[in-house]
Measured scan of single mutants.
Amino acid sequence: MFYPNSPQTSPQLTQIPYGQQYAMMQRQIQQPYHPFATTEPQARLYPYHYQGPIQQEQGGFITQQSTAASPQYVQMRVTPVDQSIMSGYPNQTANGSSSSSFNYNIHPQQQQQQQQQQQQLRHHAMPVGSVPLQDDRYRKQLIVNYLAPDVTSTDLHELFSRFGELDGARIIYDKQTNMSKGYGFVYFCHAEDAKEAVERMSGYEFHGKWLKVGYSTNPLNIVPSNSSPYVHAGSRGAAG
């Protein structure tokens, strides 16, 4: 039997160049792979992502010199942007860049009308829970959420009447099932009393439920100042 490094198959040491006398086997001759043993700084910083320098080929596509990437890492192929796409944008300079302001050559009167329309939209648009300043009635009506099913309009009136005089209180019921929808409205005579009720009743436990109280901004629920107070009856038909 002959071994790869046996004296019968191995040459004389004098015939082997210096430095390879003890590297006779194939696994010894093959050098191990060192990912950080390279002179390129990109490979030292990113050993798993770097795959060699990027070269520009004919046709405008950018390719990489090395083989496919590892399945664990996804390499994105980048193509140059066609400058003709950006030619339609206004205020574009000769080098292809555009300024931040756009001039669509709008007539001054049209621009003024658009600004007025935007101001009107901001004036009428009102986020949930906010209180408008032009109508004091919005500051007097509250919406009470997360009410228990057994709470009546009379219970709601008695709960909030300790903060001040009320114009009314009612629970909203479903017309088909005649069941409470879980929320109601309270109408105060003074805005200061309503503000105190919002601050003190939010998070209050009532009939096993934690109440959420806020201003009601729905104009359909506003009680006119010259109208008669609501009837605080315990029956659902009268309260709904």
Rank of each mutant, 00 (worst) to 15 (best):
T39C: 11
V78S: 04
A238Q: 04
P47D: 04
T9I: 14
S228D: 03
S84T: 12
Y104I: 14
H107V: 10
F163N: 03
G234Y: 03
Q30T: 15
Q56H: 09
V213M: 03
F160P: 04
T93S: 09
T93A: 08
I143W: 00
L147T: 04
F185H: 00
F163Y: 11
R122Q: 10
N178Q: 12
E57C: 14
H157E: 03
T152G: 06
F36P: 04
F163A: 04
I172N: 00
Y3N: 07
Q58K: 04
V213I: 01
Y173P: 01
T217V: 04
K181P: 13
D136R: 02
Q42R: 05
Q56Y: 15
T79S: 05
Q83G: 09
P41R: 09
P41E: 02
L156Y: 10
V223T: 10
G19N: 10
D136T: 03
L147K: 03
R44K: 04
P32W: 12
Q31V: 15
A37T: 11
H123S: 07
P53F: 15
E57D: 09
E165R: 14
V223I: 10
V144H: 03
V231K: 07
N226S: 06
Q30P: 09
S202L: 06
N218W: 00
L159K: 01
A69L: 10
G164L: 00
Q65G: 08
K195H: 10
Y3D: 06
P41A: 10
L121E: 06
V144W: 05
Q110T: 12
A169I: 01
V78G: 05
E205L: 09
K209T: 00
A125H: 05
Y3K: 03
T154V: 06
I16T: 04
S99D: 09
Q117K: 06
Y33H: 03
R77T: 12
Q113F: 14
Q55K: 03
S70H: 14
A233C: 03
V223K: 03
A197D: 01
F185G: 00
N91K: 09
N178K: 06
Y22D: 06
E199P: 08
Q109T: 11
F61W: 13
N226Q: 05
F61D: 03
H190W: 09
S235K: 07
P224F: 11
S161G: 07
K195F: 12
A148V: 07
Q110L: 13
F102A: 03
Q92S: 11
D174C: 09
R200F: 10
K209V: 00
Q8G: 05
W210S: 01
Y146R: 01
G59C: 15
S161L: 09
T38K: 04
A69T: 12
H124F: 12
D174S: 03
V213L: 03
I106Q: 14
Q21F: 15
Q31Y: 14
Q20V: 10
A94N: 08
